[in-house]
Design a protein around this nucleic acid. Structure first.
Length: 605
RNA sequence: GGGCCGGUAGCUCAGUUGGUCAGAGCAGAGGACUCAUAAUCCUUGGGUCGCGGGUUCGAGCCCCGCCCGGCCUACCA
């Protein structure tokens, strides 16, 4: 913990086929930001990257339905999603998109490297094609009657009724889920990633993580090793990254499969960040060598890509699979240090579903409530290690009892008393044993909360941090400084000094979770400078892959180096002027619970 | 069908390798205080740890079976 580490925070890429809801940001967004802010406060060099995942059939299908191009649709949701993530205060060093020319080049480089090392081969398969568009119909977009149980709504990949895995060509009376037409089945050639060639090295890799990874991620991944199959990495579709090979790149209908280019995004975004920073080689410090660590944040549905496939791609590119090989042009690349997967949030007992409108979009939420209130709920009550249920009643309770009544009130009562009676931070006189005890406990919390955060145990971390808030409230109640005003004004000053020191420490401990309101407390206590950096949208002009010329689009970036916030107790400065405080958090009227539930019912029909 | 995860007080959830592990917060009841967004502080009632077997001196914690819910099973975190 003492020396500087290079920490890559790799955040799952939200899919650009619509706005994201609070379940999405519970999985990848808020936890990754808490982690990154903490590591920066601890003095480490953090690079936090992500972007929108814009290729693939779902975007194309939705664009067709709306009568716009895939690119137009992706542009729209890239902007919506980026704005929402900024509003939440997620401190990306770079949040970009998969449609940049840089991303195309890096994804193609990974493909070429894997091909050169012999981990990619071609295979001819039967694929479903839409006669009207000529596009591939992915298995899930073909439905028909199950040949095994006779269920009519079976999908091309599996039957939801009997659970058997299917091949779309076996379906009786197949039809396109998109427009109902009967698909054609044609022979088509695709590239496959030779995953079995990585079974041994992946097993070794995963077993080396048995002490640090969350058990569910580890068990799930180890289990996958028993049945490794080659996996297609190209697709018959025109919306994607072209295959960088003669005879393929000019085929308008052959592209890299979206999952392949999406996971490469972590690397391409790091490289893009380096270019923008002025040192094109700077990304290497986070990707190569023993000193580089990488932490990947996502929801549980993405474990297979991050704990299995992406490591396999990195190993293959580096020449480290069963077939050996040489590192590609970028050099050998590190596999993930940790894969931090969240479980799922449910919504008032139901599964989130955009199509059924059982959903709360981030944007709608933040129009009515504060970002820190949502961040707090997600960390304190979110799906860190098991599915949890979001309810409006619990949101209101957490906000009112824990943020307003416990933490907000501690700030308010402490600063109010000091401001009204003294107008400044008072000097401490002789300390009692109790004074020393609470101050020591507050200092000790940096180690305990920090250890939790370093291991991505966010729920335990915020509980420990909030415990210091409860301790401080108890200290003030027990010491009753208001009663000392007439009997022992010197002692009152000491008590208020101690109380304000506790507030200052708690504000620091809570900064990774509550960056907006912690900044307010920093300022209330007379602090200056930028306490903890906030992300901003920046318009950039660059070449978008596959198109001539340049385009303007927005990325998220920010300045986080040199912020005031440090992960340590900083002595408050006696004599600093204090003004009567304004409330940190908004107390919510319990009747919003019924209002929100009514809104949900109305939307869901 | 297969794999994985979960089912602990009214509610939301903690419970490392089996032996004060039957817990926390909230809600409920009683009391203290008044600095503070009537916030805070103290005390307190409450649970067959999904069901049925088994291993053990001893099991929420290990094994077997079953019920319920979630995720993955090749493009929804």
């Amino acid at each position: 913990m003492s020396s500087t580490r290079h920490i890559l925070t790799a955040v799952a890429w939200p899919y650009a086929n619509g706005p994201r809801h609070i379940g999405h940001v519970s999985g990848f967004g808020v936890p990754s930001d808490v982690f990154s802010r903490f590591q920066r406060m601890s003095g480490h060099d953090v690079l936090m990257v992500s972007g929108t995942d814009e290729h693939g059939t779902p975007v194309q299908v939705l664009a067709d339905q709306e009568g716009v191009s895939a690119r137009e649709l992706a542009d729209r949701y890239n902007r919506v999603i980026a704005e929402d993530l900024v509003a939440l205060g997620l401190s990306y060093d770079l949040f970009t998109r998969t449609t940049t020319a840089n991303h195309y080049a890096v994804a193609q480089e990974l493909f070429t490297g894997l091909l050169d090392n012999g981990y990619v081969f071609t295979k001819t398969t039967q694929g479903a094609i839409s006669p009207s568009t000529g596009r591939t119909l992915p298995d899930r977009y073909v439905e028909g009657t199950c040949p095994i149980c006779g269920y009519d709504g079976a999908r091309g990949d599996q039957c939801d009724n009997c659970g058997n895995q299917l091949d779309p060509i076996d379906l009786i009376d197949p039809r396109s889920k998109i427009n109902g037409e009967t698909p054609e089945f044609v022979e088509t050639e695709h590239f496959m990633l030779d995953l079995p060639a990585f079974a041994d090295v992946l097993g070794e890799y995963l077993r080396s993580k048995s002490d640090t990874w969350r058990p569910n991620v580890l068990k799930f991944s180890l289990n996958l090793l028993d049945d490794m199959q080659p996996r297609a990495i190209t697709r018959d579709l025109d919306w994607g990254v072209p295959i960088p090979l003669e005879g393929w790149s000019d085929q308008a209908n052959k592209r890299l499969y979206v999952w392949f280019d999406a996971v490469v995004g972590y690397l391409s975004a790091s490289i893009e960040w380096a270019k923008r920073s002025g040192d094109p080689e700077a990304w290497r410090a986070w990707w190569q060598g023993d000193g580089a660590e990488s932490y990947y944040f996502m929801g549980k549905d993405n474990i297979v890509f991050h704990a299995e496939i992406w490591p396999a791609m990195l190993l293959g590119y580096s020449g480290a699979g069963d077939k050996g090989g040489e590192p590609g042009a970028l050099g050998a690349l590190n596999v993930p240090t940790d894969v931090v997967s969240s479980e799922f949030l449910t919504m008032e007992g139901r599964k989130f579903s955009s199509s059924r409108r059982v959903v709360i979009y981030v944007r709608d939420f933040l129009e009515r409530y504060d970002a820190d209130a949502l961040r707090y709920y997600i960390i304190a009550a979110g799906p860190e290690t098991q599915d949890t249920d979001f309810t409006w009643a619990e949101f209101v309770r957490r906000n009112n009892d824990e943020l307003v009544a416990a933490w907000g009130n501690l700030v308010n009562r402490s600063i109010s008393m000091a401001a009204k009676n003294l107008g400044e931070i008072p000097e401490a006189g002789p300390l009692t044993d109790e004074d020393r005890r609470v101050l020591d406990a507050s200092q000790a919390a940096f180690a305990t909360v920090g250890a939790r955060l370093d291991r991505s145990q966010f729920k335990a971390a915020i509980q420990e941090a909030m415990r210091t808030v409860a301790e401080a409230n108890k200290y003030i109640s027990d010491s009753a400084p208001w009663a000392l005003k007439k009997t022992d004004p010197e002692r009152m000053k000491t008590v208020l000094h101690v109380a304000l020191q506790l507030v200052s420490d708690a504000k620091t401990l809570l900064t990774p979770f509550l960056p907006h309101t912690s900044t307010k407390v920093h300022e209330m206590l007379g602090g200056t400078g930028v306490w903890t950096g906030m992300p901003r949208l920046e318009e950039v002009t660059d070449s978008i892959g596959g198109e001539d010329g340049t385009s303007t689009y927005s990325v998220i970036t920010g300045t986080y180096a040199g912020n005031e916030a440090r992960w340590e107790s900083v002595p408050i400065v006696p004599g600093t002027p204090l003004s009567p405080p304004t409330p940190l958090f908004t107390k919510l009227d319990p009747k919003i619970v019924d209002e929100e539930l009514a809104r949900l019912e109305e939307a869901a029909g």
